[in-house]
Every structure is written in structure tokens, then in C-alpha cells.
Computed example of a mutant assay.
Amino acid sequence: MFAIAAAAVFGFALLLDLLDTKLGAPDLFNWNTLVLIGLLLLALHLAGFPRRGGGRWNRGRRTGRG
């Protein structure tokens, strides 16, 4: 989920950069800020946040025959 949000933020930042547009407050919210938000979302995705299942990696027994 965070990876999809990061991709959307990166795409929006790329459009802003390519079109050379300015948003309302240039010092507060520019394409550099969007890139940092995208990196934060990507880091959260790679860290596995939020973890579900109480931190157990293997919830059940493996029954496959190999």
C-alpha cells in the first residue's frame, strides 16, 4: 500500500518538475518535499510497516510435500 502511494507521489513530483509548475507556498510545498514524502512512504513499505499478525512470520504449518 505504501509503495503504491509512493509511486503516485513520485509521479506527481515528476509532473511538477517537468511542467515547471509552482504550488501555492514555494518554501513550504515544492517538488523536493514531494520527493521526500515519496521516500518516506517507500521506506515504510520496505520496513514492513504496519506489521500484521503479531510479528510471526509463519502463521501455519507447511503441509507441502517436497
Results as ranks from 00 to 15, higher is better:
residue 27 D to P: 06
residue 45 H to C: 01
residue 3 A to S: 11
residue 4 I to S: 15
residue 29 F to L: 11
residue 48 G to T: 05
residue 35 V to G: 12
residue 37 I to N: 07
residue 40 L to V: 09
residue 42 L to G: 02
residue 41 L to G: 06
residue 16 L to H: 02
residue 50 P to G: 13
residue 29 F to G: 01
residue 48 G to P: 02
residue 36 L to V: 06
residue 66 G to P: 14
residue 36 L to K: 09
residue 39 L to I: 05
residue 54 G to M: 00
residue 19 L to G: 05
residue 12 F to R: 12
residue 27 D to M: 06
residue 40 L to E: 01
residue 10 F to R: 00
residue 47 A to N: 09
residue 47 A to I: 11
residue 42 L to K: 01
residue 13 A to M: 02
residue 22 K to E: 11
residue 11 G to Q: 08
residue 26 P to H: 12
residue 11 G to E: 03
residue 44 L to N: 08
residue 25 A to C: 09
residue 54 G to Y: 00
residue 51 R to W: 08
residue 52 R to G: 13
residue 26 P to V: 10
residue 53 G to E: 09
residue 64 G to K: 13
residue 65 R to L: 13
residue 58 N to W: 13
residue 10 F to I: 00
residue 22 K to H: 10
residue 25 A to D: 11
residue 47 A to E: 05
residue 48 G to F: 03
residue 60 G to Y: 11
residue 22 K to L: 08
residue 57 W to G: 10
residue 28 L to Y: 07
residue 25 A to H: 08
residue 27 D to F: 10
residue 29 F to P: 05
residue 55 G to H: 04
residue 17 D to A: 13
residue 43 A to R: 00
residue 18 L to A: 03
residue 32 N to M: 14
residue 64 G to Q: 10
residue 48 G to L: 03
residue 12 F to L: 14
residue 59 R to L: 12
residue 24 G to N: 07
residue 54 G to F: 00
residue 3 A to Y: 14
residue 23 L to H: 05
residue 9 V to E: 01
residue 2 F to R: 12
residue 1 M to T: 07
residue 23 L to V: 11
residue 60 G to M: 03
residue 56 R to M: 11
residue 39 L to W: 09
residue 52 R to M: 15
residue 41 L to C: 14
residue 21 T to I: 14
residue 6 A to M: 05
residue 42 L to T: 02
residue 59 R to A: 12
residue 43 A to F: 01
residue 56 R to E: 12
residue 4 I to E: 13
residue 3 A to D: 09
residue 2 F to Q: 09
residue 2 F to V: 06
residue 53 G to Q: 12
residue 29 F to I: 08
residue 61 R to H: 15
residue 28 L to S: 07
residue 55 G to W: 10
residue 19 L to Q: 06
residue 22 K to V: 04
residue 41 L to H: 04
residue 17 D to S: 14
residue 65 R to C: 07
residue 14 L to V: 02
residue 54 G to P: 00
residue 49 F to Q: 04
residue 64 G to M: 13
residue 8 A to Q: 15
residue 63 T to W: 08
residue 57 W to S: 15
residue 6 A to C: 10
residue 6 A to D: 05
residue 5 A to L: 01
residue 7 A to L: 01
residue 2 F to M: 07
residue 66 G to W: 15
residue 39 L to Y: 04
residue 5 A to S: 12
residue 26 P to S: 06
residue 57 W to L: 10
residue 2 F to P: 07
residue 45 H to Q: 02
residue 66 G to R: 15
residue 11 G to K: 14
residue 51 R to E: 10
residue 42 L to I: 02
residue 15 L to I: 09
residue 12 F to D: 03
residue 24 G to A: 13
residue 33 T to K: 04
residue 61 R to Q: 11
residue 14 L to C: 02
residue 27 D to E: 08
